[in-house]
């Protein structure tokens, strides 16, 4: 039985939160983590949809340094305010 996309998004969000400041995670890392956990119950398309949900909802943003990672929203250190 396929895992609902909302559940995948929530679980991905938890992984991103735990890794914040420790490791930058990319879309592929999150997909692999879900596949490792649920096997065939997760398709790549579902994982992509979950990532899209995280980004579109604003819960996560794309970072750039060292590759396009998926991160918690943050104010850039370089920003001159």
């Amino acid at each position: 039985m396929a895992i609902p996309v909302e559940q995948l998004a929530d679980e991905m969000y938890e992984i991103i939160k735990e890794s914040a400041g420790v490791k930058k995670l990319k879309g592929g890392d999150l997909t692999k983590a879900m596949v490792a956990k649920y096997g065939d119950e997760v398709s790549r398309a579902d994982a992509k949809a979950a990532i899209r949900m995280l980004i579109d909802s604003g819960r996560c943003v794309y970072g750039y340094f060292g590759g396009s990672s998926i991160e918690l929203p943050h104010s850039e250190a370089a920003e001159n305010k």
Binding site: I55, V61, Y62, G63, Y64, F65, E76, N80
Partner: peptide
């Protein structure tokens, strides 16, 4: 250079401070 993204997008902006 840094990262700024328009909501929903992961690219398209070359940020420069």
């Amino acid at each position: 250079g840094t990262a700024i993204n328009v909501p929903g997008y992961g690219g398209g902006v070359i940020a420069r401070y």
